[in-house]
Design a protein around this nucleic acid. Sequence first.
DNA 1: TAGTTACTGGTGT
DNA 2: CACACCAGT
Length: 540
Amino acid sequence: MPVARPDSSGARIIAHVDLDCFYVQVEQRKQPKLRGLPTAVVQYNEWKGGGLIAVGYEARNYGVKRSMRGDEAKEVCPQIELVQVPVARGKADLSSYRNAGSEVVSILARKGRCERASIDEVYLDLTDAAEAMLAQTPPESLDEVDEEALKSHILGLESKDGNDSKATVKEWLCRCDADHRDKLLACGVLIVTELRMQVLKETEFTCSAGIAHNKMLAKLASGMNKPAQQTTVPFSSVKGLLDSLPIKKMKQLGGKLGTSLQNELGVTTVGDLLKFSEDKLQERYGFNTGTWLWNIARGISGEEVQARLLPKSHGSGKSFPGPRALKTVASVQHWLNQLCEELSERLCSDLEQNKRIAHTLTLHASAFKSSDSDSRKKFPSKSCPLRYGTAKIQEDTFNLFQAGLREFLGSFGVKTQGSHYSGWRITALSVSASKIVPVLSGTCSITKYFNGPDKFGSTSEQLPDNFIDAAPLSPSGSESYSTLNSTELQNELPGEQVWIEHSMADLGQLEMKANTWNRLDPSCSISKQTSGRSMVSFRN
DNA sequence: TAGTTACTGGTGT
DNA sequence: CACACCAGT
């Protein structure tokens, strides 16, 4: 649920940058002959031509929608180019899009604080950069403004944004009698113009952007003129923008909260919200959400741009709809193994490229239970400490699944011999890795995360906990994961210290390059030679 | 029997 | 913390 945050002190300059139909652009860069043609990206195509996950703007002109199947798209636009998402291990492989997203982030992060909000969206806090520009080379001092910047949209500037808009935009950008906020915004517009041009030059991708005084308004603005355009929201036009805006357009109000607002309070537009007191909204939706609603109705949002260029988790999943639902343990194990392979590969890349390790492994599944009259039931998600190495991840994941399945069936496991009816069907599986923390990185030393005594006597190098074969201090603590390999899992100890044990037997299964291992972990071989078992501790 | 999939991030308990 | 559930693309 949304949380109200106090609006921070001064005026901030926040940008939201959104890549236009990103997957389509990635495929068009890979295959330039597709440029300019109506194009969509589909995943799988066995059933009704596959599901569209991105639609290019040429195709949108023919009425192609993201909700369509490939076959429907062909009906309304017979000449459409349908590009398939790469497949690896029998599932969609989104790595090329993730990598392309990273290219863009590394460019956008050059100015100001940058938050990777999704695979194709970032927020930027450009306050400092804008202040600096205003102090050194304010727009009003410029004789010429970049032609690209003049294509900007400025909300509330004239009724029309068509005719001689460039002249009026230039006038607005360079007004010397503008208030401080608008001058800062003008600087933000110029900075974002520059960033978008750099993105285009260096990646060939176009993007759209919104520039405003907070994240909410910037996000709203980035979607107002697409593709390849940018929109700014001066403070003076906030009310006019929000007054008639359907609440469903607002982030966080597209779901149940928005529906409730409409049904319970008769609120259709953000402006309608203004009629309700903060107390009234709190009474109906709780303290936090009530205040949050009262604030957003007024264009107030103190949410900060987080400095984060990398994802907080990695996941690999696949659905098995309708008749494809999995009915045997063997088929589930097969698919879990595929998902774990992908996850393990991505974890290793993250380790090599970003020097980060994940600490938690989680399994999610969706299932039907057909024995009960009500066939629908929730399959519990399960998690455990994450051990690196494909085989270990596969083993732990399968154990999590079995634990979940037992719970799901209420310990009345119907025997599942052969390919016979087994009382359950799995319609989706996913494995994810979370709690990802940086590991030794010069300035950001691992010692920050490992506060326990240094059992190696080595001062300079320490090891990530889940690589080490560490013997448990006590024979057994409380067995949080008793259904799993009990001796190899986490035990809680007093003093908030946690000891992790791991087998070194199949270190070789770590799909990492030896030189990487040695570079990251020079003491590893030492600990292997000297003891075969070694310990490390860390504080949670 | 979910045919908008395969991801992400966030909050509440 | 583990887990449920919401939301967005």
